[in-house]
Design a protein around this nucleic acid. Sequence first.
RNA 1: GGAGAGAUGCCUGAGAGGUCGAAAGGGGCGGUCUCGAAAACCGUUGUCCCGGGUGACCGGGACCGAGGGUUCGAAUCCCUCUCUCUCCGCCA
Length: 422
Amino acid sequence: MIDPKIVRENIDLVKHTLKIRKMEDAVDIATLEELDAKRRSIIAKIDELRTQRNSLSKQVGALKQKGENPVGIMEKVRGIGDEIKKYEEDIARIEETYNTLMLSIPNILHESVPVGNDENDNVVVRTWGQKPQFDFTPKPHYDLGTQLNILDFERGVKIAGARFYVYRGLAAQLERAIINFMLDLHTKKHGYTEVFGPFIVNDDSMIGTGQYPKFMDEYYRIERDGLSLIPTAEVTLTNLYRDEILDGKDLPLYVTMQSSCFRREAGAAGKDTRGLIRVHQFQKVELVKFVEPENSFDELEKLVADAEEVLQLLNLHYRVMLLCSADTSAASSKTYDIEVWMPGLNRYVEISSCSNFMDYQARRARIRYRKKEGEKPVLVHTLNGSGLAAGRTLAAVMENYQTKDGTITIPDVLKPYLEKTV
RNA sequence: GGAGAGAUGCCUGAGAGGUCGAAAGGGGCGGUCUCGAAAACCGUUGUCCCGGGUGACCGGGACCGAGGGUUCGAAUCCCUCUCUCUCCGCCA
């Protein structure tokens, strides 16, 4: 959620953001402003009535102690109470709509975000390495893996359904190696604290990071328990400090967690139907930062670099994309995607998305910090990024490290993590 | 899953319909004292919302797990939910 003050004091900024995000019709700004004004006038009215009630009720108590019978005042206060109740009903109704509208306002974009219409207007900010050359036609990972009998899509479908898979032998070991390698890199070199927490979370957590209520259909929710499977460890990590006031001395705070991620992929019918690219359950190492507002954009650059290093050490060619205004997700003020080259698929595939949410998530989740003892708490800025998606990394390793005879070699950095090399 | 107990400020913990934003102790911060420190003593110590000054200030309101209810008035009474603890059961 953006700062309500922006709506009051700088509505043009909101309008501009909606415009360049191509979301002009998504939010009824006029209604929002009207509701905000109404809301505040009713609050003023209620507060005034409560002031009256409080002082009159005190008189009742005082008179009763003197043994007098203050029926008249009691009647009057009852009337005030009824009036308050009426206003309270009004405000509950207004705030419900107001909050829904506020929540539907996307984050203000950083001025460095390029204005564009769709993903074609994303900007390549840098590339690393180059496409590997093969003297044969490289296979997509799903063919390669099926032939090697290490990826089993048919049995995944049998056990769970479409978009599920089974790893066997090397694929299973390799992904485990990839996850451990990534965690070690981030904890030992980049200063993240490894965390492990729930894969199943309550609605408050899903709301805190912005999955709910807007994107209910995208996630698996267990009705009976009111819990949801996390679509990313971002949910677990960011909600670590929901409803807390952090000590400024502890910032910046870097945490990382590996988890399975569960996504219904409701709107992705027909897309990436083969292989590991788009599945209902995948593993990912997530990076989350809680930082002071003035540093958050520098922290974003460092976050991207932390994720990039994984690919560099794996010697996988990639490019970093700065997402344009229309392609940046609603909660983010600036997002970089890292796209790894997949020679078998013959295209770049997103393997990490790194965003600065500024105070957008922190406001929803009420994550604040106190710069110094005695000072007012202020909202932190939160950032997150994949560091990286393990399944897609596995697929990228397979495609980039394949040999002419249909096997794959093991990247040097992963060798220590595997019992045997193949 | 069954039985019982409980949820109060940074922490411990009182309060049991009015004067309670809330005793007391601890911690933190400031001060006195000291060459300095400890100890003693004094002071201070929440969050959110609305309004005004639109500087770190003033006025009002809300908040004692969450949400409803009773009442002139609720931290205190009633209902629902959530969570915690103890015992039993089950279990990786």
